[in-house]
């Protein structure tokens, strides 16, 4: 597929997968909010997992794009992917702040 001894497409693929795994662990810690904040915390768990799943499902396409870019094809930076993941983290953190500040604790 490509002849880059620096293995750039693989390293980038692994960086995306680590990010996806980090999102899954964030979802696991969000689970600890469910007894206290109810369904809204459950929504945050589901949202984190969905972003992680979204990364996993689009990974193959990104890898092939990177490999053909290393192989010499024109490769424009992936604005949509970076904007989507950064935006997701901003929204998750924002909803977390909203939860901590404004939602009542359930007993």
């Amino acid at each position: 597929m490509h002849d880059d001894p620096g293995l750039q497409p693989e390293r980038t693929d692994l960086a995306w997968r680590r990010t996806s795994l980090t999102l899954i662990s964030a979802a696991c810690i969000f689970l600890r909010w469910v007894p206290h904040y109810g369904w809204f915390a459950g929504t945050l768990v589901a949202a984190s997992l969905l972003v992680a799943l979204g990364i996993a499902l689009t990974q193959r396409r990104r890898y092939h794009r990177a490999a053909s870019g290393i192989g010499g094809a024109a490769m424009t930076a992936n604005v949509r992917a970076t904007a989507a993941i950064a935006g997701s983290v901003v929204v998750l953190a924002g909803l977390g702040i909203y939860t901590v500040l404004f939602l009542p604790l359930q007993r």
């Binding site: 880059d4 620096g6 750039q8 497409p9 390293r11 980038t12 960086a15 995306w16 680590r18 990010t19 980090t22 990177a66 870019g69 290393i70 490769m75 930076a77 992936n78 970076t82 993941i85 950064a86 983290v89 953190a93």
Partner: peptide, 18 residues
């Protein structure tokens, strides 16, 4: 393309930090 990919990995490292 190597620089674009390196920039993407650095971005992802920042995202994991956040």
């Amino acid at each position: 393309a190597r620089f674009t990919l390196a920039n993407e990995r650095t971005f992802l490292a920042w995202i994991r930090t956040s």
